[in-house]
């Protein structure tokens, strides 16, 4: 029983990471109908930036606070320079560019930082597990950070004028321009925001799985699964989906398929969702009378 509870707690902790990356994916998907295959590699690269800062003597949270805006700028720049000109290109072209970005980030990271696994510090200390040994300090801390991030993003989109304009630009770019919303800027902001969320997810997961250029491949796959499970058109659904996938992954790994087939579980979830319920669990089918 204890083991079971621990698996669930771990599942929630890693689920938070998947939920963050899933949210980043959904934000870009909603605005552009593109799946950003490079989302994970961008997060990995951001994590290396943080590590470089920390190794240069910058305190952890200062490094954290520098990495997030730097990642924002990188994300926004990619949208402006690479993605915007291809906005109307066919699927193959956008997939090609995303894969190109993925390969570029991956190998540039390998080039600069080498392919060896590197430990990444946790800001929450090693210490003894808390609450009767069920949850490690890092699990608790990273889950808290993830929840704060997710809540702030939600509040931003829900309550601010800019957040509303970004949603509007994603849903209906033509009408948005007509009311004066600069749609292209909103897309760049969205990319920046997605990259920042990814960066935080990367920094939170790196202490657990160690940092190397291929660190995010698995995370990205679980995030795909989470986003699809929750509904790729529904940010809240994607977040819930991310948490569910985290729990399934941990329980499945511990009791059903074993750790060797964890990634296959993600593939399985993706295929099942897409064939059985492509809109996902919480995907909205819009009722419209025109």
């Amino acid at each position: 029983m204890d083991g079971f509870i621990h698996q669930i707690v771990s599942g929630i902790a890693s689920g938070g990471i998947y939920a963050s990356v899933a949210l980043a994916l959904v934000m870009i998907y909603q605005a552009t109908h593109h799946v950003n295959f490079a989302q994970g590699e961008m997060a990995m690269f951001s994590t290396y930036i943080a590590l470089t800062l920390i190794q240069a003597g910058v305190p952890y949270w200062a490094a954290f606070c520098i990495t997030v805006p730097v990642s924002f700028v990188i994300g926004a720049l990619i949208q402006r320079v690479v993605m915007e000109p291809l906005a109307k290109a066919p699927v193959l072209a956008s997939v090609g560019v995303f894969i190109g970005l993925l390969l570029t980030f991956n190998s540039v990271a390998g080039w600069i930082f080498t392919y060896t696994l590197k430990p990444f510090p946790s800001p929450f200390g090693e210490g003894k597990p808390l609450f009767g040994g069920f949850v490690s300090r890092h699990e608790l801390g990273s889950t808290a950070v993830t929840l704060v991030v997710l809540l702030s993003i939600w509040a931003f989109f829900r309550f601010t004028k800019l957040g509303l304009a970004m949603r509007a630009a994603a849903y209906n770019p033509v009408s948005s321009r007509l009311v004066g919303v600069p749609v292209n800027k909103m897309l760049a902001l969205g990319w920046g925001l997605a990259a920042s969320i990814g960066a935080i997810a990367g920094m939170m997961v790196a202490p657990v799985i160690f940092l190397d250029p291929n660190m995010m491949a698995g995370v990205l796959l679980y995030a795909f699964a989470g986003a699809l499970l929750g509904g790729i058109t529904n940010p809240l659904g994607a977040v819930v989906g991310g948490f569910i996938v985290g729990i399934i992954e941990n329980l499945g790994g511990a009791y059903v398929v074993g750790t060797e087939l964890k990634l296959t579980t993600a593939l399985f979830i993706i295929v099942v969702v897409l064939t059985v319920k492509p809109a996902g669990l919480f995907g909205k089918t819009l009722v419209s009378r025109v």
Binding site: F37, V91, L92, L221, F224, K262, L263, V271
Partner: peptide, 23 residues
């Protein structure tokens, strides 16, 4: 199943297949 997946989704699913193959 790929039949039901429009462009991007198929790319995503086959990408997942590539990730899972060695496992």
């Amino acid at each position: 199943p790929a039949l039901r997946l429009g462009g991007m989704y198929l790319a995503l699913t086959t990408f997942a297949l590539a990730v899972a193959t060695p496992q």
